[in-house]
Write a protein that binds this DNA or RNA. Sequence first.
RNA 1: GCCCUCAUCGUCUAGAGGCCUAGGACGCCACCCUUUCAAGGUGGAGAUCAGGGGUUCGAAUCCCCUUGGGGGCACCA
Length: 504
Amino acid sequence: MPQPSADPTIRVRIAPSPTGPLHIGTARTALFNFLFARHVGGTFLFRLEDTDVARSTEAYERDIIDGLHWLGITWDEGPDAAGGGDIGPYAPYRQMLRLDLYREASDRLLAADLAYPCFCTPEELDADRKAQEAARQPPRYVGRCAALNAAERAARLAESAPPPAIRFRVRPGIVGWNDLIRDRIEIDTANLGGDFVIVRGDGTPLYHFTVVVDDAAMEISHVIRGEDHVSNTPKHILLFEALRHPVPIFGHLPLILNPDGSKMSKRKSQTAVDDYRAEGFIREGLLNYFSYLGWSPGTEEDVLSIEEVIEKFDIDKVQKGGARFDRSRLEWLNGQWIRRLEPDELIDRLRPFLQAALVDGRIDRLPSDGEVGALLPVVQERLPTLAAVVDLVGFLWVDRLAIDPIVVVPKRWDAATTREALALGRDILAAHDAVTWEADELEPPLRALVETRGWKAGDLFMAIRVATTGRTATPPLFDTLVALGRDRTLARIDAAIETLAATV
RNA sequence: GCCCUCAUCGUCUAGAGGCCUAGGACGCCACCCUUUCAAGGUGGAGAUCAGGGGUUCGAAUCCCCUUGGGGGCACCA
């Protein structure tokens, strides 16, 4: 990756939580941070927010790290993608390994009475919430434990009851910031829902707290994240202030939306990057597409490499409104990038998809790289995704082809004509030996046959196409027959003739 | 319910007061090419710039209101 002039004052991060496979939204946020950092030569770091122990898994962790690296979104500091330890001056970059830091920070807040222990039980909190809901009031912490004095706290602490959580005191007033993307935003802290919990009763810290402690510790200069965090930002600013650390610059990206306009969700969209990868979307296409979701260089170019996007990226040109996910546009871009791949590269990337097809029985034999390479001239421009190769030319590598006798008969013909034409065509093809089995050798004699019989070339070709491939849509017929080979071509035509005879 | 926020073709967007009778791309339609399917080429339909008020000689662009959409209000992240 090109790094123009290194700027040590720019430090951004992606901080996913390993509670699910790599999500498109996470990838997009990571990409914009990456673009922002690379454009100016800043530092991009990766931090795992794994404090939700119940939902976090190592498998998801792996999936997120691998997925981002597969896309080419690489970080300067963070977990080693190869599986080694964390790399960077602020290691570790996993929150569960930074518990001491949060403990120390919460102690400081407690000592300064900027936070206090809260003894409320889940039942009490729940009852509060229900009452507020019934009174059509916005939910907020009622402050039951806010004014406890030292003696009362000591007494409560002495009780066996569950250990207290720690709440941060929300000070009254307006909190505002100049958002990189949406300019000035101001929020009255009265709307924050009251004092909020920063440490659970079991001692583990909560997101709002860890994110601030870590962004402070890691000297993050710009927090670029999804718009869903706008209303959390005041809490974070309050915490930065309480911790006596300069407040970073915030920038809130527009969300990626479902086709119906709601926040992207698994229910309504395919959200896992893995799933797109499995379908044969390539990183170039995905990156190009994501870059243009909520951003545009302001020119009329649509197909840009990641290097070009890095060069042109400008956070000021990021859109404010959310962007709906448009799969057909992604497919088009993906096809554009597949067409731009070098032959050897494309063969490499196709291989896993061919292997997968072999494993699940859609093909019976794995073609050699040479075979695939020979096909590229007619296949490359026909692939919206890599996986589409099996649909396109998988018939080349199956042992037994199922022919639908209805489909093999061209619209203008009947079964008898088709059988006759296939037989005549077969004999003409059989006259070729291995040396003359070439596309431009095969075609003329068949056209001559069509001429003498007064047929349409398209009809004969279609009958042969379906007989030899089982499909009505294929790459150019004669290139296909060459790929199939003389023996299999003749055998398949024979089989088709037989099938036709049986049905007449 | 409360708070925040957004608003240009179906979709992604260009547009920073006159260059806009609003441009590009995807998708869609037609034609060309053509043995099918793609790709490619050409052309077309498609947005009274959400609506209403201002400001201005002049507004998609600035201000206000309305409407609509989205997000957030946890001992989740």
